[in-house]
Design a binder for these strands. Structure first.
Lengths: 343, 343
DNA sequence: TTCTGCTGAGAAAGCGTTTTCTCGGTTCGT
DNA sequence: ACGAACCGAGAAAACGCTTTCTCAGCAGAA
């Protein structure tokens, strides 16, 4: 005769009944409130153990007005970058007893705002990676999402923390590196059009071009995954560039694979650089020169900002910029002496 | 004068007030109950839109006894296999309006049961990847976790769906493949001790040995990541084996990287095989021979089983076995003619 | 006209907690 | 020894929603 509640699960009422006290007292005991008589407390605890009682989190959430859960919106769960952010976030949040709810927008920008709103209502806060959303829309929904932490986006509202990787600086460093190796004809294999982080890279390249008027930089359409890089082989070869700046490591890997199939030697004929320094970058052949982003740290940092927001501490620096670190490996080398790459 | 509720957010009461009806009617309208007068319904909808009212999911969950959320426990969010399962699960669940809550047990087996219980209480069901938990413990907690879908584990309870990859068959196929290439000295770079999927591989190898008495199979300690493979180079070379079965693709990649550093040629001197066919496997150099597991499908399947459980359909087949498919690429080749690999 | 049957909407009872409010019973001070 | 301060625990309200219950109000049938 244990199952009382309609749901079939045992609730606080069962424990109260068994211990011969009121719901309130059981609640007090379960929450470590010391204003309860030790004998009674012991009796309640014994009853709770015997019944294997575990408070229903939904009921608690309603009463407490908090869920101990945060949400994260990512554009693509297949992308190692977001996997790493998720990992860092989840790990750090778990340490403080929070869980994370995920929402994958599948790179469709119209979903981002809806998912963000839904996720936010179920959680105590939201981490938003929404590279495709327009600035206007972001600006509009951001206030309603508070507590909110932005990744690779900024907003005019100053109280919203924002962690952004300085892709512009990173791509400049990579370009400088290639130029230092003697390359004068570069190509940028761009990311998804409209992506915020792609925009930052373009700004960086513009700055680079301004300071290096004699270096030729060709812009090539691309994307963010393996296949994009693989398919770009023809365009890359046609460009005549000897130094290729790929949007990210995935694209670089796809490109290198395609070049390999064509018999083009990297880096002897063409140098290739990636971006992000995903774990696999050091295991490609040749190992990939890239700009390292401390991406799991970024996830952890996102949690720390979020925690401060939730606890209303508000003392942390709202905006943090991550400087990528140049990671020179074997996929970049001196410009080849032959006039054009082997085909 | 809109903010009524203590939480500051607008609730059903605000809408009711504004539309001049009762809470009940607002609820009916919001849930598409047609027993409400069209005029009133329109008035309510207008009020809801004007106030930007969105029902509080926690309140709904409490009333409805469901959260529209499922949980997943994974041993390591850094492992591409679980990332893929998570992705497949999340994607499929989202299609049916469900979200997923993640719990990372960080490969510590004692956490698995606790996390599973906690996650389960917050959700409508649980997908459990708990390779380290003992059979006894699994058996004990499984009933309390229902609806539950197991990945790569089985339980005596027949009504619990279980999706398991036939690692035993896969590893046998890989071994056969190597033997077919002339290898007679193999080595198995094992996974984490106590891991369920490692156990399945060992069983497969035992069967293989029984049917191939003349083939020598050395067992080597290992793990599940890059570094494990990389560190195993010495042991691998010392074993004298010419065909190496790595626990998974990550280990294989680490090993190949280590062998490359030592000047050992793959596959000329030593053949290496992986397991899982992670996306990167086709971009390594040489490309990796492996056993392909339709891992994202597995995540989707997990959702379908879960959905059947939640809807109490119970008609789906409770146990599904996935047969890995041999994916022969360039990291495996004929055994070398020289007596021992270059060092 | 009166009674039955039906419709549509408000009142109220949950869902499972936490927390405030209240009050009987002690204890302390004088 | 009597009132004040206090302490511990039960009653009840609150959290935000859904759903059953209930009952006006009205249409149709006898």
């Amino acid at each position: 005769m244990v199952r009382r509640s309609a749901t079939g699960r045992i609730g606080i009422a069962d424990v109260a009944l068994k211990a011969g006290v009121s719901h309130a007292t059981v609640s007090r005991v379960m929450n470590g409130n010391f204003t309860v008589d030790p004998d009674i407390a012991a009796r309640v605890r014994a009853a709770a153990v015997e019944l294997k009682y575990q408070p229903n989190p939904v009921g608690r959430s309603l009463a407490l007005g908090k869920t101990d859960t945060i949400g994260i919106v990512v554009p693509d769960l297949a992308n190692p970058t977001f996997q790493a952010i998720l990992r860092g976030l989840s790990r750090a949040a778990a340490q403080d007893g929070y869980r994370v709810l995920i929402a994958d927008s599948f790179e469709v920008s119209s979903e981002e705002a809806i998912l963000a709103g839904e996720a936010r209502r179920r959680c105590d806060g939201l981490v938003l990676c929404a590279p495709r959303m327009s600035d206007a829309e972001l600006e509009e929904i951001a206030p309603s999402l508070h507590p909110l932490v932005l990744i690779n986006r900024t907003t005019a509202a100053p109280e919203i923390p924002s962690l952004v990787v300085d892709y512009g600086q990173g791509v400049q460093a990579l370009a400088e590196h290639l130029v230092g190796l003697g390359h004068t004809r570069l190509a940028f294999l761009a990311g998804p059009a409209g992506s915020a982080s792609n925009g930052l890279r373009l700004e960086g390249l513009a700055a680079f071009k301004a300071s290096h008027p004699r270096v030729d930089v060709t812009m090539l359409d691309g994307g963010s995954d393996f296949d994009t890089g693989h398919e770009a082989v023809d365009a890359v070869l046609a460009s005549g560039a000897t130094g290729i700046l790929a949007f990210n490591d995935l694209v670089a890997m796809g490109l290198m694979s395609g070049l390999h199939e064509r018999g083009v030697n990297v880096p002897a004929d063409i140098s290739v650089t990636g971006f992000d320094d995903i774990p696999f970058a050091r295991y490609t052949t040749p190992t990939l020169t890239t700009a390292a982003v401390p991406i799991a740290d970024l996830g952890a940092q996102a949690w720390h900002q979020m925690r401060a927001l939730i606890r209303q501490e508000g003392l942390e620096t709202p905006g943090t910029r991550y400087q990528p670190r140049l990671e020179i490996r074997a996929s970049s080398g001196p410009v080849s002496t032959s006039t054009s790459p082997a085909r």
